[in-house]
Amino acid sequence: MVSANKEMVVYCFDTLVAHFNGEQVPPPAFDEGQHPLFVTWKKAVNGGEPRLRGCIGTLEARCIINGFKDYSLTSALRDRRFPPIQSKELPFLQCTVSILTNYENAANYLDWEVGKHGIIIEFTDPDYNTRRSATYLPDVAAQEGWTKIEAIDSLMRKAGYNGTITESVRKRIELTRYQSTLFTMHYGEYVSYVKTTRG
């Protein structure tokens, strides 16, 4: 099993920096593999808590080298919730890579643990008779301080459900739980790494 590591985060920073400088991305220092993965950018200003700046990935297994290359740019520049990251923000960024593992079908919408499991929900919107789905990575509910029900309700809204959330609607949810390995690095650590390893 592949775990998220420092070289993967370095490759995401390399990709973003190369994009801003119009350069080629240096080759990655980790091995090929097929895994579901996410890239998350956060920005810390004035020593405050880092705030989400972009997070996009895939729940399907894909080649991790291409995956990190694609999603480091997609999450930085094309997350519709945020304006694109600009080069002047680089010094304030931190990047987290997530490799997702251990997919399991849950018995019901409460069959998971906050802080341990990421969750994927799928359900039919009774108002429009359409299928909706959304996911939160394992650290989201814990960071937000949510109960399981608060996380589920927030995820239903993220999926685009605008109706009243009742117990009977929640009970229609098919929930898949999963786990992940993470590695986080701040831009300053990335710069030090590059100086040390590449001179």
Rank of each mutant, 00 (worst) to 15 (best):
V2P: 09
S3C: 12
S3Q: 12
A4N: 05
A4Q: 08
K6C: 14
A18F: 10
H19P: 02
H19N: 12
N21H: 15
E23T: 15
Q24W: 03
P26I: 13
P27W: 07
A29K: 15
E32H: 10
H35R: 11
H35D: 03
P36N: 02
L37H: 08
F38G: 01
V39Q: 05
K42C: 11
N46K: 14
G47I: 14
G48V: 04
R51T: 15
C55S: 13
G57D: 07
E60G: 08
E60S: 14
A61E: 11
A61F: 06
A61C: 12
C63P: 06
C63R: 12
C63L: 13
I65R: 03
G67F: 02
F68H: 01
K69T: 11
D70K: 13
S72V: 07
S72H: 03
L73C: 08
S75A: 15
A76R: 10
R81E: 08
R81V: 15
Q86C: 15
E89Y: 04
P91L: 14
F92K: 10
L93Y: 03
Q94K: 05
C95F: 03
S98N: 12
I99S: 02
L100T: 06
L100D: 03
N105G: 10
A106K: 01
N108E: 06
Y109L: 09
Y109W: 15
L110W: 14
W112I: 09
E113P: 00
V114E: 04
G115W: 10
K116R: 13
I121E: 02
E122K: 15
E122R: 15
F123K: 06
D125F: 06
P126A: 05
T130V: 12
R132K: 14
S133E: 10
Y136M: 09
Y136L: 08
L137T: 00
V140Y: 06
V140M: 09
V140P: 00
A142M: 14
Q143D: 14
Q143N: 13
E144F: 07
E144R: 13
W146L: 08
S154M: 02
L155C: 01
L155K: 01
R157F: 00
R157H: 05
K158I: 04
N162H: 09
N162I: 10
I165F: 02
E167L: 11
E167F: 02
R170W: 09
K171T: 06
E174A: 12
R177A: 08
M185V: 09
Y187D: 02
G188H: 10
S192I: 13
K195D: 06
K195F: 12
T196G: 00
T197Y: 13
T197M: 14
G199R: 12
